[in-house]
Amino acid sequence: MSAFVSVNGVSLQYGGAEGTLALQDTTFSVAQGEFVSVVGPSGCGKSTLMKVLSGLWPVSAGHAVVNGREVTKPLDFVGMAFQNPNLLPWRTVLDNLMLPFEIVEQHRNKLRRQRAAYEQKALDLLSLVGLAGSERRMPWQLSGGMQQRVQLCRAIIHDPLLLMLDEPFGALDMFTREELWLVLQDLWIERKPTVILVTHDLREAAFLSDRVVVMSSRPGRIIAECTVDVPRPRRTEQIYEPTISEIVLKLRAQIGAARHTSSGRPENRQIAGPASA
């Protein structure tokens, strides 16, 4: 089967010829239903890669293909979540979850007549992430972790084929973060969307993913990858057991090696070749 997401030699330069080169000759692919994490230093172009795949920003060179079609504009089978919860503060939790239905064309027309059914979808999802009974609350009445759960629900409520998460747990404390890893795992097991998760937490990447992809510092390209062959559902304790902790160590070593080779010659963009371990 051909890849569901395939990025082929993609470069992206912000703001014309003099602008920042955020991605250079990036190539990677994701299979349907796969959970892939992208890790890399801050500013290396991870969010840029997300913008390319969601059709929010055109590439300067190369091809980005999702679901068999070249990405040229936003696609409604994509769901996104970010580090900030980005909830609409004037809407209740439930009304926030209805937002994708109000926009995605296929649902927009039916929403009026089938409102109850759509709301039931939202309520089911809320109870799946442990927020049953919170549907009438306003966003500011929720903790950061709860808001992030709502954002996850909103990203997935219209059953997107591709779920893109850009450091969604970056601003949360360790305990909340681990809780949300399990929430995300449950959501993924239940719906099996293709997931691309950007994070700078190696344990998070190793715990959640089928495969972890490492990006170099700017301009970003893929310098290493690593599969995580651990059956699901995974338990958070496994992070501290050899199966996952060894992968975390291996990733660390790969990133360290990549840093080492590139730090001496920052001008040279060729040095960070595939540093497979």
Partner: peptide, 14 residues
């Protein structure tokens, strides 16, 4: 309007 909020909607095809 926060650019990310705009992106959330734009990504849905708004």
């Amino acid at each position: 309007t926060e650019p990310e909020l705009r992106d959330v909607l734009r990504a849905l095809g708004a």
